[in-house]
Simulated assay, not measured.
Amino acid sequence: MKKITSFTHLTTGEGDRISYTYSEVDEKGNITSQNNKGNFVVIDSDLTAHIRAIQESIQEKHL
């Protein structure tokens, strides 16, 4: 099973980008691989809407 351990949103020349790290865990709960990395450019409009909602929430509640 793959478990997300962190992710971040970046604004790049290509648009919104999500970078993430994850660990792989076996059926007994043992970590078999960790600190694996990946990233992608967001092209899904639903995901873009979620990113904007998080940004707005941070702006309203924390800044």
Score class of each variant (00 low, 15 high):
residue 16 D to G: 06
residue 14 E to M: 01
residue 9 H to K: 15
residue 60 E to H: 07
residue 60 E to W: 05
residue 17 R to K: 13
residue 9 H to A: 08
residue 13 G to S: 11
residue 47 L to D: 09
residue 2 K to R: 12
residue 9 H to Q: 12
residue 48 T to F: 05
residue 60 E to F: 08
residue 21 T to R: 12
residue 11 T to M: 13
residue 63 L to S: 11
residue 30 N to R: 11
residue 59 Q to C: 00
residue 18 I to K: 08
residue 14 E to C: 00
residue 1 M to F: 06
residue 1 M to G: 12
residue 35 N to L: 06
residue 31 I to T: 15
residue 58 I to M: 11
residue 55 Q to H: 07
residue 46 D to E: 14
residue 2 K to T: 02
residue 19 S to F: 00
residue 57 S to D: 02
residue 55 Q to P: 00
residue 37 K to H: 05
residue 38 G to F: 05
residue 28 K to C: 05
residue 13 G to N: 12
residue 53 A to S: 05
residue 5 T to K: 11
residue 10 L to R: 14
residue 33 S to V: 04
residue 42 V to S: 01
residue 21 T to V: 08
residue 47 L to Y: 06
residue 48 T to A: 10
residue 22 Y to M: 13
residue 34 Q to E: 15
residue 15 G to S: 03
residue 20 Y to T: 08
residue 32 T to Q: 07
residue 61 K to G: 10
residue 62 H to T: 10
residue 36 N to C: 06
residue 43 I to N: 10
residue 46 D to R: 09
residue 50 H to F: 05
residue 38 G to I: 03
residue 55 Q to F: 01
residue 43 I to K: 11
residue 10 L to C: 02
residue 10 L to Q: 15
residue 5 T to A: 01
residue 46 D to G: 10
residue 51 I to Y: 08
residue 43 I to C: 00
residue 12 T to L: 00
residue 41 V to T: 14
residue 3 K to E: 14
residue 14 E to V: 01
residue 18 I to T: 10
residue 13 G to E: 11
residue 13 G to F: 06
residue 27 E to Y: 05
residue 6 S to Y: 06
residue 35 N to Y: 14
residue 52 R to A: 04
residue 35 N to K: 13
residue 11 T to G: 00
residue 28 K to N: 14
residue 8 T to I: 04
residue 18 I to M: 10
residue 53 A to Q: 06
residue 36 N to T: 04
residue 1 M to V: 14
residue 43 I to H: 09
residue 42 V to K: 06
residue 34 Q to Y: 09
residue 7 F to S: 02
residue 10 L to D: 15
residue 56 E to D: 09
residue 62 H to S: 13
residue 31 I to H: 08
residue 26 D to R: 03
residue 43 I to M: 04
residue 26 D to G: 10
residue 38 G to Q: 03
residue 37 K to W: 02
residue 32 T to D: 07
